[in-house]
Design a protein around this nucleic acid. Structure first.
Length: 864
RNA sequence: GCCCUCGUGGCGGAAUUGGUAGACGCGACGGAUUCAAAAUCCGUUUCUUUCAACGGAGUGUCGGUUCGAGUCCGACCGAGGGCACCA
């Protein structure tokens, strides 16, 4: 080995290669007529918070590997990047620092773009946009009008989740444990008039189409299916004994019509119209309603949800037994937003009803008993929800519950007193937000004409720039002039809608916009038809429901309004795990940054004070609040982008969490240097060695072995990358590097040829992961052009076919020996050879062989 | 409470359709090089029997299917995630 090996310095080479790729326009997507198959790879675009974090590095490193790999395989690759740029943090910055949200946002974008570029990611930057660009959101406004025309938009008053800290409305999906997903504040219930997108109209399709998303993680499909929550049941009425509150009957929905004979009471939601009507003349009921509203979705849920009720004194007739009267309660556990907001209760077979019945001393009649139980079956404090046999149910006795269910529904339908109904948990998507930094909703409110769409010619409705954030609430609402506009219909003085879109609207169609940046339209249909759907979408599991469900709805809405030709935005989805790090605290319980800690065998100490012990906490997701963060800029400055990328792809399977460790980075860094030494050691001697397709003639035994090893590596890395098995690909590449390092050329020309070809293959195989190092190595080996523009190596099928194979020999399932046999040997030959093996003979010990299993190429097993 | 996923060395993790468990990396230990260190290179590293073996055990626990189980089936234990009054 040369005594004068150089070190690879990424700080010198990386910028140069980034410039070279840009100069060669390497990553610009080609047009539909380029003759190549298309491949659209997309990573979830970031919110421009100001700095990228390690989670971004992992996410974009994975996407970049896919993009570069597919490009090398001959695909026309679209790999764009943009910014999810509207949202609350910009307003918070305005409040805290007095900087305008737009200024703050665009400065952050500039900073983060520079960071992403320093990672050497193969983005087609010519398609970059931010969702806060008027050139983007004008089309969002136009599409909203299209959706309005297509009947996909609704405006109605509803009880909404109000976030008292952010002063805005939240969708159900955005309320987590009764708290706002961003602010963490307990959510209140308020009545507000809101714009809705009618996502529930396509609930059935969103559910059934999940079956075809075979390249989505099963977990995400399941989560969406649960969220959509389809159920089938009976809608019917219970007649009031006497009309009350303007009603003659109560409409209910039930999935358990089979348990009708076990009915005990009916219950109304506190927000049910009849409840509200009754409360007008009943102060106690009004007080009860206020109590329920105050408890809202917040505290009561966290504390376990105690059942509360109020007896209205009303009675309803049982629909199957007109003489049977049931009491009507108002109950806090009945939701107005689902079904009809009223239920009949069968406490024996529903835990909530049972809890309620026990509390208010209402009867419990079991009507389903386990098949192996008898008619004395009773229920105490646990409702029986299992399958079994109907009893105490007149004509239904003896039937299975699902038969009874069908029979009852049929009966109601024939008698015209009810109907089979499908309900969904999924509600319409409320998109109004009382914020400034969002896309204005292009509507005008006129006293005479109502809500009137802004004429398309007047779009975009842009945000005013002179706004203040010195008081809570929406600056658009209190702006002196912005909201005043004539009614587009009658010309009278009117006011603009001051709400802006939920930012999830912005991210619901950006993938489509990337396919073609038409000035006049949201999409270029031809380009969109060519590129869509996204072949591989990569992002965090935290978007399994919110973003991914909205985007699926939006694609359908865009399809219906002619902007897209497909319903599904993402044909393939991959959800990567989080980046975690150890946590550290000092004696006073303060969190410490990793660089403040000196980590030693015996324990950890404060770097600045070796006597100050540090407690090492759990490994958790990197977060600013726990200070267990590592800044990508620091890592890139010290080790280069390739080391950071390589480490992010090594070891842990991509769908799982990965732990960032200094040892791991050091390991990646060592490999970078090792590869460079390997190339540098041989580069000069090999520069003029010709490489040929196929195996060089006259190979030595070692040369032959290396050749086979190289081609096995090509084959398996290709398979691993196809399956997004980055950690497996990394392991294969280590193997290949080891094989190349230990190869000693004898001086035979064929040895040099096979070594050079092997080194070139190595460089090409790791190029998608460490693209800068790959270019430097490629150049040193005298390779033509850029690796980034080189075709993916092909495995020589002949080299993968080995002629002899080592087979283990088992006796009674225990491995006792191995034999080397010809690949083509038949079973009898293999058995004979195995039998002749001394070890085997020893263990067989003359015992009679009961059976001999021979799986050619795999195993021999003697049963004695 | 309901639903889902996962349990493999000191650690991260490999292991086509059931077919040599522990690839690859990290860490650790021993050695080489060095005045010394860093860097690098070589070797060992699942546990275990006094050393060694082509000895025994071994993929959370217990059982089953099979010539053969990390992989399939059942029960249990543990960890993680999702949903949570959806009638």
């Amino acid at each position: 080995m040369s005594t004068n090996v150089s070190r690879y310095d990424p700080s010198v080479s990386e910028h140069g290669w980034q410039a070279a790729w840009e100069a060669a326009d390497c990553f610009k997507a080609e047009g539909p007529d380029c003759g190549k198959p298309k491949y659209y790879v997309l990573e979830m675009f970031p919110y421009p918070s100001g700095r990228i974090h390690m989670g971004h590095v992992r996410n974009y490193a994975m996407g970049d590997v896919v993009a570069r790999f597919k490009k090398a395989q001959g695909y026309n690759v679209l790999h764009p990047m943009g910014w999810d740029a509207f949202g609350m943090p910009a307003e918070n910055a305005a409040i805290e620092k007095g900087v305008h949200p737009a200024t703050w946002t665009y400065e952050n974008i500039d900073a983060m773009r520079a960071q992403l570029k320093s990672l050497g990611l193969s983005f087609d930057w010519s398609r970059e946009f931010a969702t806060c660009d008027p050139s983007y959101y004008r089309h969002e406004q136009a599409m909203f009008l299209d959706f309005l025309d297509a009947g996909l938009v609704d405006r109605r008053e509803s009880i909404v989740n109000w976030d008292p800290v952010d002063h805005t409305v939240l969708a159900n999906e955005q309320v987590i444990d009764g708290k706002g997903w961003r602010s963490g504040a307990p959510v209140e219930q308020r009545a507000l008039t809101q714009w809705f997108l009618k996502i529930s109209d396509v609930a059935d399709d969103l559910l059934s189409a999940l079956d075809d998303l075979t390249r989505w993680p099963e977990k995400v499909r399941l989560m969406q299916a649960n969220w959509i929550g389809r159920s089938e049941g009976l809608a019917c009425s219970f007649e009031l004994e006497a009309p009350a509150g303007g009603a003659t009957h109560i409409d209910i929905y039930t999935t358990r019509p089979d348990t009708l004979y076990g009915a005990s009471f009916c219950a109304l939601s506190p927000d049910h119209p009849l409840t509200i009507a009754l409360a007008a003349d009943d102060t106690k009921l009004a007080e009860f309603r206020a109590l329920c509203a105050a408890r809202g979705t917040s505290e009561s849920e966290i504390e376990g949800g105690e059942k509360l009720g109020y007896d209205t004194g009303l009675r309803v007739r049982h629909p199957l037994e007109p003489d049977w009267l049931l009491p009507v309660y108002v109950a806090n556990f009945v939701l107005m937003g689902y079904g009809t907001g009223a239920i009949f209760a069968c406490p024996a077979h529903d835990q909530r009803d049972l809890d309620f019945a026990r509390k208010y001393d209402l009867p419990v009649y079991p009507v389903v008993r386990p098949a192996d139980d008898d008619a004395t079956f009773s229920v105490t404090n646990t409702a029986y929800t299992g399958d079994g046999v109907m009893f105490n149910s007149r004509d239904l006795d003896g039937l299975a519950p699902d038969t009874a269910r069908a029979q009852i529904i049929d009966r109601f339908e024939t008698e015209n007193r009810g109907a089979r109904q499908v309900n969904f948990r999924l509600r319409d998507w409320g998109i109004s937000r009382q914020r400034y930094w969002g896309c204005p909703i292009p509507m005008v409110h006129c006293d005479t004409c109502g809500a009137v769409p802004v004429p398309r010619a007047d779009l975009p409705i842009t945000l005013p720039e002179d706004v203040s954030f010195d008081e809570p609430g929406n600056p658009l609402d209190r702006h002196p002039t912005w909201k005043h506009a004539p009614c587009p219909k009658c010309g009278a003085d009117a006011t603009r809608e001051t709400d802006t879109f939920d930012t999830f609207v912005d991210s619901s169609w950006y993938y489509a916009r990337f396919t073609g940046l038409d000035d006049a339209r949201p999409t270029e249909r031809a380009a969109a038809d060519y590129w869509m759907s996204v072949d591989q979408y990569i992002g965090g599991i935290e978007h399994a429901i919110l973003h991914l469900l909205y985007a699926r709805f939006y694609a359908r809405a865009m399809n219906r309004t002619g902007h897209l030709g497909t319903d599904e935005p993402f044909a393939g989805l991959f959800t990567q795990g989080m980046v975690c790090h150890e946590t550290y605290r000092d004696n006073d319980g303060n969190w410490l940054l990793p660089e403040q800690v000196d980590r030693r065998e015996a324990g950890a100490f404060l770097r600045t004070d070796p006597t100050h012990a540090v407690e090492i906490g759990g490994v958790e997701k990197m977060s600013k609040s726990k200070k267990n963060v590592v800044d990508p800029d620091d890592i890139i400055a010290t080790y280069g982008a390739d080391t950071a990328r390589w480490f992010m792809l090594s070891d842990s399977p991509p769908e799982r969490d990965v732990q960032w460790t200094q040892d791991g980075v050091d390991g990646a860094w060592r490999f970078v240097q090792r590869v460079w030494r390997l190339i540098d050691t041989h580069a000069e001697a090999l520069r003029d060695v010709p490489t040929s397709a196929g195996a060089p003639a006259d190979l030595s035994q070692e040369g032959r072995a290396l050749y086979e090893s190289v081609h096995r590596s090509i084959d398996s890395v290709t398979q691993d990358l196809d399956a997004l098995g980055f950690n497996r690909a990394v392991a294969r590449i280590y193997n290949l590097a080891n094989a190349l390092s230990s190869f000693e050329p004898t001086g035979k020309p064929s040895d040099h040829q096979v070594l050079k070809a092997g080194l070139e293959a190595l460089v090409q195989l790791f190029a998608p992961m460490m693209p800068h190092l790959a270019e430097t190595c490629w150049q040193a080996l005298g390779g033509a052009g850029l690796v980034a523009q080189t075709a993916w190596p092909k495995a020589d099928a002949a080299a993968l076919e080995v002629d002899t194979v080592i087979m283990p020999v088992q006796i009674n399932g225990k491995r006792r020996a191995e034999i080397t046999v010809s690949k083509s040997a038949d079973q009898a030959t293999i058995e004979q050879q195995a039998r002749a093996e001394p070890q085997v003979e020893k263990f067989l010990d003359g015992k009679p062989i009961r059976k001999c299993i021979v799986v050619p190429g795999r195993i021999v097993n003697f049963v004695v």
